[in-house]
Computed example of a mutant assay.
Amino acid sequence: MPFSSTTIRDRRRADVRRRDGDAPCALQITADCRVVGGQIDFEARPPHPRSFEVDHVVSSDEAERLGWSSVEADALDNCQAACRQCNREKSSGERPTAAIRPTYVNPRFM
């Protein structure tokens, strides 16, 4: 579970805001977000679609599969500013993994 403590979540939000300033939404997935140039309303509170959220670049589930600790998954360099609408859109499913190709064996050497 990302940001298991509200203290960590609030501190991380402040860290990302301090680092990024008034930067636009890092994702800009939705058409609504692209129309306004990714502008985030830092004063708005959820459920406002333009409200500020911290997004994990590598999702918590994916980080767990990669063997990362929760501290590594919540590290500042794995977090970015995003609007609520785009963050929810990104969170709607897992990224597809590439299929593994069978190894090629030259018929001459069989």
Rank of each mutant, 00 (worst) to 15 (best):
M1F: 06
M1E: 10
F3E: 05
F3K: 07
S5R: 15
S5D: 15
S5N: 13
T6D: 13
T7W: 03
T7C: 02
T7Q: 14
R9D: 12
R11G: 14
R12Q: 13
R12E: 09
R13S: 08
A14T: 09
A14P: 11
V16R: 04
V16C: 06
V16H: 08
R17E: 09
R17C: 13
R19M: 15
D20W: 07
G21C: 06
D22L: 14
D22F: 04
C25Y: 02
A26K: 04
L27V: 11
Q28W: 00
Q28F: 03
I29R: 06
T30A: 15
A31R: 14
D32N: 11
C33L: 00
C33H: 00
R34V: 05
V35D: 14
G37R: 01
G38D: 12
G38S: 09
G38Y: 13
Q39E: 10
Q39L: 09
Q39H: 01
I40S: 00
D41V: 01
F42E: 03
F42S: 05
E43I: 03
R45G: 03
P46S: 14
P47D: 11
H48P: 05
P49M: 11
R50P: 00
S51T: 11
E53T: 15
V54P: 02
V54K: 03
V54R: 06
V54E: 00
V54L: 13
H56K: 02
H56M: 13
H56Q: 15
V57A: 12
V58H: 10
V58D: 08
S59M: 04
S59K: 05
S59E: 13
S60W: 08
D61I: 01
D61M: 03
E62C: 00
A63Y: 00
E64I: 09
G67I: 05
S69L: 06
S70Q: 14
E72S: 09
D74L: 09
D74T: 13
A75F: 00
A75Q: 05
L76Q: 06
L76D: 14
D77Q: 05
D77S: 09
N78D: 05
N78F: 06
C79K: 00
A81F: 10
C83S: 02
C83K: 00
C83D: 15
Q85G: 02
Q85R: 15
C86R: 01
N87T: 07
N87P: 12
R88L: 12
E89R: 09
K90T: 08
G93L: 11
G93K: 07
G93H: 12
E94P: 04
E94M: 07
E94S: 08
R95F: 08
R95V: 11
P96A: 07
P96W: 10
T97P: 01
T97N: 10
A98K: 11
R101W: 02
T103A: 09
T103C: 02
Y104L: 12
V105N: 08
V105R: 14
N106I: 00
N106A: 15
N106G: 01
N106M: 04
P107H: 01
R108T: 03
F109W: 07
M110L: 09
M110T: 03
M110G: 02
